Measured scan of single mutants.
Amino acid sequence: CHSECLGNCSQPDDPTKCVACRNFYLDGRCVETCPPPYYHFQDWRCVNFSFCQDLHHKCKNSRRQGCHQYVIHNNKCIPECPSGYTMNSSNLLCTPCLGPCPKVCHLLEGEKTIDSVTSAQELRGCTVINGSLIINIRGGNNLAAELEANLGLIEEISGYLKIRRSYALVSLSFFRKLRLIRGETLEIGNYSFYALDNQNLRQLWDWSKHNLTITQGKLFFHYNPKLCLSEIHKMEEVSGTKGRQERNDIALKTNGDQASCENELLKFSYIRTSFDKILLRWEPYWPPDFRDLLGFMLFYKEAPYQNVTEFDGQDACGSNSWTVVDIDPPLRSNDPKSQNHPGWLMRGLKPWTQYAIFVKTLVTFSDERRTYGAKSDIIYVQTDATNPSVPLDPISVSNSSSQIILKWKPPSDPNGNITHYLVFWERQAEDSELFELDYCLKGLKLPSRTWSPPFESEDSQKHNQSEYEDSAGECCSCPKTDSQILKELEESSFRKTFEDYLHNVVFVPRKT
């Protein structure tokens, strides 16, 4: 048989008469490798580009789960590009990614509803959504962080984005990388972005840091009482949809009607710091009717980097990364020049730590249904340095008659930039024990000054392991946590139920 035959053949030295091919099969003959313009397919066939392209389009058009959109890589027609490569849609070739590779997620039936953290986790790592997304989240724990972890990498949506009755959302900033909504599939009414009845939605994105392009379709905003109209108009300008909307697409009466839409800028007039305090004062603000001013709200939190936005980490279910302080308005003076500047002394802060701070007014709604208010920009203030805590785990070892090696770990709280350490030492008198000992005694162990690591005695271990207080009263049991108490109650309830079950099964009433 021919060298490319495997198993047997019907005619000697003829690659077209093989029972099976050793390498690849091409047009009725066995070959060692697939010549151009053919590609290896499933490690035994040679196919042309049209064959591989037909497989790709067949799966793409069917949208069946589990099928493969075949691509070409290293002269092979394979189910998908290997790690580190992405497909070129024009020629199906796998090309190296520039940075992290995109991950295209194809949605069944063309859309997916995100109504819980669990459903959001199914899209973790996706960068391109081939379909439409509907966000409908009523509640949950730590929602802002969970949504950002699972949806934060999405850069492109081919269909539309719909935010509907998501009472738990305060902001859409968890879509931190969303840059493009194509609108290839539109919501009824030709809408590519749809926001309806979101009672706590206050911000779409921080438009000073976020760009969003909507290729096709219109915007729809109705019944978002805490979303200011200025935020919607800003989205029109940034996304390129200005002029597409009709009169009733953006409701003037049901958007922002319960919001404090600040239209003035508060400026800080005085800032002073110490290692654990920050004193702030800002310019006074009074609405047209000074009785509408209820006070100020001061927001602050630790910020290692200057990239904080107002609604980071917030949701309507209680999660809030900001510390909020309510401040009463100052006494009002008739003389504008003698107006008191409101302020606040922030206490209990960490030394040498940068804080993000902003302040906003708290006002009631005027009778004319106009909203007044003022808010400052987010500023960054760093507390002063102070003395560091003591170095940890000092170790001293003498390696000769004239040297001592000293080692330690950095302090747990540096409280500033540590530039150097101060080492103090003092000579001590020799131990009298060394002169009084009889060095001729056998088995004498000389006193040693070398360091030995501390260890816990058996008594201390027994005390720590004991669940009861000892007789001397030195140790006591740790208080039980809520989960331990709940577990004990469940076990007790189970024992009672099981005992009742045994009584009912074992003891049967005697027939009379």
Rank of each mutant, 00 (worst) to 15 (best):
D197R: 03
T323R: 06
I134K: 02
I114D: 00
F311N: 09
W344C: 11
L294P: 14
G110N: 15
P336M: 03
I114V: 06
S396I: 00
A303F: 08
T213E: 09
N255L: 06
M235Y: 15
H106Y: 10
K350R: 15
V397P: 07
K177D: 07
A259K: 09
H106K: 11
G131T: 02
W286V: 06
K277W: 10
A144L: 10
G313T: 14
Y285L: 05
Q245L: 05
N387M: 14
G373Y: 10
L107M: 03
D326C: 04
S269H: 07
R291A: 03
V238F: 07
F365Q: 11
L265T: 03
Y223T: 04
K301T: 08
N190R: 06
G217T: 00
N136H: 11
G159M: 01
G295A: 03
Q121H: 11
C126Y: 02
Y270T: 13
T323Q: 12
Q382P: 04
L169S: 06
T127V: 03
N263T: 09
C126A: 01
Y223L: 14
A149E: 08
H233L: 02
L133S: 00
Y167I: 13
S338Y: 05
A259N: 05
T353I: 14
E122G: 15
I135P: 00
L107P: 09
N334S: 05
I181L: 10
S269A: 08
P391I: 04
T386G: 15
K253M: 08
E283K: 06
L153V: 10
G110R: 04
C228T: 09
R369H: 02
S166V: 03
T353R: 05
N198H: 00
L108Q: 06
V238P: 13
Q216N: 04
K267P: 08
K103D: 11
E231F: 13
W286S: 09
P342L: 13
A303S: 06
I188L: 11
A144F: 15
S333I: 12
G313S: 04
N190I: 13
K234L: 05
G240Y: 06
W344T: 12
L345C: 06
L279F: 07
I134R: 06
E262W: 09
D312S: 09
N200Q: 15
L293M: 07
S260M: 11
G110E: 04
L280G: 01
P304Q: 06
S333V: 11
N307T: 04
P329S: 10
G217W: 00
V381T: 09
W205G: 06
L151R: 00
N399W: 15
V238A: 06
S171M: 04
D326F: 12
D292K: 01
G189R: 02
I157Y: 00
N142D: 03
Y305C: 15
P351Q: 11
K360S: 11
L362S: 15
P329W: 09
Q354K: 02
Y191P: 06
E246N: 15
K360W: 03
L219E: 02
Q258Y: 05
N399G: 12
T127R: 07
D257V: 07
Y194P: 01
L204C: 12
L227G: 00
R176K: 09
R291G: 09
L172W: 00
A259F: 08
P410S: 15
E237N: 05
R291L: 05
D206I: 04
E368R: 14
N136Q: 01
P284L: 13
S116I: 04
M346Q: 05
D115F: 04
G240Q: 15
A385T: 12
K253W: 10
D312M: 15
C126G: 01
Q354P: 10
R370Q: 04
W205Q: 01
S260H: 09
N387I: 07
D367T: 08
T118L: 06
I232V: 05
P411L: 01
E236S: 12
N334H: 13
N211S: 07
D289M: 06
G240T: 03
A259W: 14
Q339A: 14
K103Q: 11
G139N: 07
E283N: 14
V104A: 11
I114H: 00
T273H: 11
N200G: 09
S333D: 10
V324R: 06
K226T: 10
V363T: 09
D115T: 12
G189P: 03
N255E: 03
G348F: 13
K253Y: 07
F358V: 06
S116Y: 02
S260T: 11
L172A: 07
S116N: 04
S166G: 08
Y285W: 06
S402I: 02
V324L: 07
R347H: 09
D315S: 10
T323A: 13
M346F: 12
D292M: 12
K226I: 08
L279K: 15
I271L: 06
L169G: 02
T361W: 03
T215L: 02
K350F: 12
A195K: 00
G295K: 14
T361V: 14
S333P: 08
G373K: 04
C126R: 00
R247C: 03
L293H: 04
W286G: 14
S158Y: 10
N200P: 02
I163Y: 00
L294Q: 06
K234R: 13
S269D: 09
G313I: 04
D326V: 03
L279R: 09
Y167M: 15
E283A: 15
N263C: 11
G110L: 12
Q216F: 15
Q245G: 10
A168G: 02
R179V: 05
N224A: 01
S119D: 11
S333H: 15
E236G: 04
E283M: 15
P304S: 05
T118K: 03
D289I: 02
R202Q: 02
P388L: 02
V381P: 02
T386S: 09
L345F: 13
H341C: 08
I157V: 03
E262F: 06
H233D: 03
G295H: 03
K177Y: 06
L178S: 00
N340T: 12
R164K: 00
P329T: 14
A259G: 05
Q339W: 08
D393A: 07
T213A: 07
A259E: 04
L331Y: 08
E187Q: 03
S376M: 01
L219S: 08
H106F: 04
E148T: 06
V390D: 15
L279I: 11
T118F: 12
M297Q: 03
K103L: 14
S274M: 04
R165I: 13
Y305N: 11
V170C: 06
L133V: 13
V117Y: 02
L265P: 03
G110S: 07
D335I: 13
A251D: 06
Q203V: 07
W282K: 00
F175S: 01
L147W: 03
Q403V: 05
C228V: 02
N387D: 02
G183T: 01
M297H: 13
D206M: 06
N334L: 05
Y194L: 11
H106D: 14
Q339G: 13
S400M: 05
K337Y: 12
